[in-house]
Structures are given as C-alpha cells and as structure tokens.
C-alpha cells in the first residue's frame, strides 16, 4: 500500500488498482484477466452504459440550464412585462374607443341628414320630427343650455394627521354617495338636465364607487367633480345650501362644495350609445279613455 492510501479506509480493489497498467482508465482488473472475447464484451457494455448516462446528463443539463435561465429571466421581467402588456392593452382599447367614437359621430351626422330629408317630405314628418326633438331633449341626447348652477366638489383639504381629526381618512374624499346626494337634491329642486364632469346623466345613468374614482355612465371620473344642472338657479342653490343639507354635512369633513349660479349653463349631450335589451314598449289593449 502506498503512503497516500494510509489516510483513507482501505479499498478492496486497492491491490488490483496498483497492479494496473498503462491505460489512464484501467481496463478490466481482476486477479485473472478475462479472456479476449469477454474483455471485448465488457468494454462494449461499459461504453453503452457510460454513453447512455452521459447523453442523458448532457440533455438534462442543457434543458435545465435553458429552463432555469428563462425562469429567472421571467421572474425579473415579469412585472415589467406585465406593465408593458397592460399599457399595450390600454392603448389598444383607447384606439378602438377612438375609432368607435368616430363611427358614432358619422352615424349621428347620418341621422341628422336623414332628419333633414324627412323634414322636406311633409307635415306628418315635421310633426314626428318635433316629437323626436322633444323626446331627445328629455332623454339627454341633445346639447342643452339654460340658467342653472355649477357645483364643484373637491376632496377635503383637511388631513387626519395635520388637523387632528378623529375620523376615518376615507371620509375626507368624495364618495359616490356624496355625489348622489347632491344630484338627488338638484333633481328634487327641479333640475332638468344634469352632467357630472361633462358626462350627461340619463335615466339609466349610474353614479357608483369604482375604487378611488367614481363611475358615471360606465366612464370613470376623479375629483374634483363639476356638476352642472339646468333649472331655477335659486331653487337649485337653496336646495343644496339648506340647513342640515348636503353641503353642511360635507362641510363637517371640510369637503368643499362650491355653487355658482349662472344664466347660461351649457350641458352637452350624452355621447355614448344606449341599448334596451329587456324593456319593451307595452301597449295596453284596453283604451285608456273609453268613450
């Protein structure tokens, strides 16, 4: 046994190894060298085994290397990619939106043209047209102008930390309920047309909390909210400013509600589309006024 081997546990094959010859990986070692054919066979099976396992090792290693590389890259880029993806989606939707809006405008032009044409074709058409105009005015499909008020609601200037308020900080921002209250008072006071940040309120309009913003006609708006209403300016203003009314309630949280009376409030038409899927006109078979 050589010196080097002394600090190792003795190996059973040690003698055989030290007896071995030139090849760096020794051929078959045994007390009695195997016959020629057996040695050949032995070499072949060894080669196959090592070849197979080395092949598998290489394959797995390369695949795993690629996979790990990609996985870690993904982990790093995931957030970035996600942001980009969302940005792209947003842009796409915006483009679609713009295209649809253009289409809407052209269709509205068409309608106006048809109306002009129909006007020229007789009294009946003129009557119908007048009725249509009135219906559109009521429904909110025309720009309207008239005396009214402009109500501006801004988030509270107070802060819980700075002003020592003992309220939930969420009370300091404007909620859908606050807007609803204002709109409700305006309607109660006889407002004929109302818009919020330029979005015309229809019979089907919602005013709803959508996270930190408010959804009106399925479009989202953030504070400050500018509510325009056409009606008797005095009545509208006093409805909002009455004692114990909405402005006084909101003033508790230092939410500022500014009411400006004006002789000319312009409220734009609803620019979207409406579709009634479920509601249908119901015609009563019994005449309402039998005579």
């Amino acid at each position: 046994m050589s010196d080097k081997q002394q600090n190792l546990p003795p190996l059973p094959e040690e003698d055989a190894v030290s007896n071995e010859s030139n090849d760096w990986i020794a051929p078959a070692l045994s007390a009695e060298p195997p016959p020629e054919e057996e040695a050949q066979e032995y070499k072949r099976t060894y080669s196959i085994g090592v070849f197979f396992v080395c092949l598998l090792f290489g394959f797995l290693f390369a695949m795993q290397f690629k996979s790990v590389d990609i996985t870690s890259e993904n982990a790093v880029n995931n957030q970035l990619l996600r942001t980009q993806e969302l940005q792209n989606m947003l842009n796409e939707e915006r483009q679609k939106n713009d295209a649809l809006y253009q289409e809407l405008l052209t269709l509205k032009d068409d309608i106006a043209r048809y109306r002009e044409l129909s006007l020229q074709s007789g009294d009946y058409a003129a009557v119908l047209n007048n009725e249509l105009r009135r219906a559109e005015l009521v429904a909110g499909f025309t720009d309207v102008i008239g005396p009214g008020v402009t109500v501006t609601m801004s988030d509270s200037v107070a802060s819980v930390a700075g002003d020592g308020l003992t309220v939930d900080p969420s009370y300091l921002i404007i909620h859908d309920n606050d807007i609803l209250q204002v709109v409700n008072e305006l309607r109660d006071a006889g407002a004929e047309a109302i818009s919020i940040n330029g979005e015309r309120l229809l019979a089907t309009s919602e005013i709803r909390c959508a996270g930190s913003i408010v959804s009106v006609n399925n479009n989202r708006y953030a504070a400050p909210f500018v509510i325009r209403a056409i009606g008797d300016p005095e009545a509208l203003e006093s409805a909002l400013k009455m004692r114990g009314g909405v402005i006084e309630q909101l003033a508790f949280f230092q939410i500022e509600v500014d009411v400006q009376k004006s002789d000319e409030v312009l409220i734009r038409a609803y620019t979207g589309t409406t579709s009634y899927t479920y509601a249908q006109e119901y015609k009563d078979d019994v005449p309402a006024n039998p005579s």
Binding site: V50, F51, F52, V53, C54, L55, L56, F57, G58, F59, L60, F61, A62, M63, F65, K66
Partner: peptide, 10 residues
C-alpha cells in the same frame, strides 16, 4: 461523445 451529443440535443 454522449455528453456532447446530449448537450447539443438539449
């Protein structure tokens, strides 16, 4: 040889 082939394959 097997190792190289496996790496290439992978």
């Amino acid at each position: 040889f097997g190792l190289l082939l496996g790496l290439g394959l992978g």
